[in-house]
């Protein structure tokens, strides 16, 4: 069940991938927005205008994009880690180390999502907004929360995947990423 080829696997991979692509597209939209705002500011004399709240929009976009990138990075093992010493421990121990670190990642993502939920509810309650656009911060948090929830789902799946490999006595295939 917890294999990338299974139905569950294909669903989770697809979910993380599309979310990451959405994050990337938001980055590109930010690039366009910043450039338009720069042009508007530079050509004030010709009646153009910068985009109001461009700095706030960049922050909100970042909040979405970075959360959106987290599931994909974990799924594809892109996070930086050091296997210099553990390489001498042999495959069986390493497979179980992976299970433990995946559990830590699950704990971290779940903690982040749990706390972010309460942060979001605070923002709804206190009605805080951004400075110029008066964009509700609750919505900005909610956009990040989507990524955080999917991060938890992916962390569950990845944990299941590494437990599966470890119990079968196999090692996970090497993936491109920052694993070293």
């Amino acid at each position: 069940m917890f294999r990338d080829e299974s139905r569950l696997g294909r669903f989770v991979v697809g979910l993380a991938m599309w979310l990451a692509i959405a994050g990337g597209l938001v980055l590109m939209a930010m690039v366009a927005m910043i450039c338009i705002s720069i042009v508007g500011r530079a050509l004030l004399a010709f009646g153009l205008k910068p985009i109001t709240g461009d700095y706030e929009l960049v922050s909100i976009g970042m909040g979405f994009a970075v959360f959106a990138f987290m599931p994909w990075a974990h799924l594809t093992r892109a996070h930086a880690l050091v296997s210099l010493i553990t390489d001498s421990f042999g495959p069986a121990i390493n497979n179980w180390i992976l299970v433990v670190t995946d559990l830590m990642m699950l704990a971290t993502s779940a903690f982040i999502a749990w706390r972010l939920y309460f942060g979001m509810m605070d923002k709804f309650a206190y009605k805080e907004t951004t400075l110029l656009l008066r964009f509700p911060l609750s919505w900005a948090y909610a956009m990040g929360f989507v990524g955080a929830v999917i991060w938890v789902i992916v962390s569950l799946y990845v944990l299941g995947r590494s437990i599966g490999y470890a119990t079968r006595g196999e090692s996970e295939p090497k993936r491109m990423g920052a694993e070293v």
């Binding site: 990337g24 980055l27 590109m28 930010m30 690039v31 700095y55 960049v58 922050s59 909100i60 976009g61 970042m62 909040g63 994009a65 970075v66 959360f67 903690f111 982040i112 706390r115 972010l116 309460f118 942060g119 605070d122 900005a140 948090y141 990040g144 955080a148």
Partner: peptide, 22 residues
């Protein structure tokens, strides 16, 4: 951590990191 994760990620000054990577 109700706010810290969000404010770390939604950082204007750190937006240069993904933009330069892109």
């Amino acid at each position: 951590f109700k706010n810290l994760t969000y404010s770390t990620f939604a950082s204007y000054s750190l937006s240069v990191v993904p933009l330069f990577l892109l």
